[in-house]
């Protein structure tokens, strides 16, 4: 990722040719990535040290997050106390979907929350500083708000997963064991990419949060339930446009040995990683474009 491509409005000075090589270009791409990744780790290590200065507050934060999200989980159980099944799905299966979404979403909150508050970064001029450093902007933005305390919600997800597995007696296979972490990781990236798109919007507007929250928070809530119970346009939106259905429902069909009531072929369950890669690529392109717009508008 470079933001140094030719820009239309900026003619090259004829007198001195632009030096075509730079240290970071000379070295292979992989080593650039490695350097930036190790910097990212240093940044977040520093942030964790900063956050750990207030240990008691940290622990309280984790616990309260766990409890607040635990209420949501309790809500599902209360709901199923009245209705024993929903669209043919039992409570254990629903909680399993909820666990998948929650774990992915909560991890994404730990690592990628900074894009949710990115409009503040832009408004306060902090993005200028990011552009002044010889590191990829996205690495710096990601590292700027790494919040370990949000692990409380991950905990809720793990508890939900345990409760779900106690009820559904899932038949484990090697394939399922291997695919589970892939699905969770994909989910983290998918949510992060949605936030990245939302963050990019803050280059133009400060009202972005509400719009994108419909997709993140709304998406989380929605995809805790089997997507087959929704109307067609909702299913299509969350499959093709904002592919949150690939976080839990589609791979969930495979884990739970169910077939889609609407007759989707089995392989759809395995599309999660591919869909994630494509969606992330689109989000990254949009971001890169946004950064260049920022540079020429100076908002």
């Amino acid at each position: 990722m470079r933001n140094e491509k030719a820009s239309k409005s900026m003619p090259v000075m004829p007198k001195q040719p632009v030096p075509s090589v730079r240290p970071s270009v000379l070295s292979p791409q992989s080593s650039v990535l490695r350097t930036e990744f190790s910097l990212y780790l240093r940044f977040i290590a520093a942030r964790i040290r900063g956050q750990m200065q207030y240990r008691a507050s940290f622990i309280l934060d984790v616990i309260s997050r766990f409890l607040v999200n635990g209420l949501e989980l309790a809500g599902i159980f209360i709901l199923f106390h009245r209705f024993s099944s929903l669209g043919g799905w039992g409570v254990g299966e629903i909680v399993f979907l909820y666990a998948l979404v929650t774990i992915s979403f909560a991890f994404h909150e730990v690592v990628a929350q900074s894009f949710e508050d990115f409009s503040l970064t832009v408004r306060q001029g902090e993005f200028d500083r990011i552009l002044l450093r010889p590191i990829t902007p996205i690495v710096q933005v990601l590292a700027s708000d790494f919040q370990l305390k949000r692990l409380g919600r991950v905990l809720t997800g793990v508890v939900a997963l345990i409760l779900a597995l106690m009820r559904v007696h899932l038949t484990w296979t090697v394939g399922k064991l291997l695919y589970m972490p892939v699905v969770i990781l994909s989910g983290i990236f998918l949510f992060a990419a949605i936030d990245l798109i939302g963050g990019t919007l803050s280059f133009w507007t400060i009202e972005r949060t509400e719009v994108i929250n419909v997709f993140t928070y709304g998406g989380v809530y929605m995809s805790s339930y089997p997507i087959s119970i929704y109307q067609a346009w909702i299913r299509r939106t969350f499959t093709f446009f904002i592919p949150i259905a690939f976080v839990a429902y589609y791979p969930g069909l495979y884990f739970l040995d169910r077939t889609d009531p609407l007759g989707l072929p089995r392989f759809v369950s395995f599309l999660t990683p591919a869909v994630t890669v494509i969606f992330c690529a689109v989000a990254l392109c949009f971001w890169e474009w946004g950064v260049r717009q920022y540079q020429s508008t100076g908002s």
Binding site: V12, R22, L131
Partner: peptide, 18 residues
């Protein structure tokens, strides 16, 4: 046009940053 330390600031922003 602008040139700083022999570089074009927007096209070579990160090299210039150093």
């Amino acid at each position: 046009q602008v040139r700083v330390a022999g570089l074009d600031p927007t096209r070579q922003r990160r090299t210039l940053a150093a």
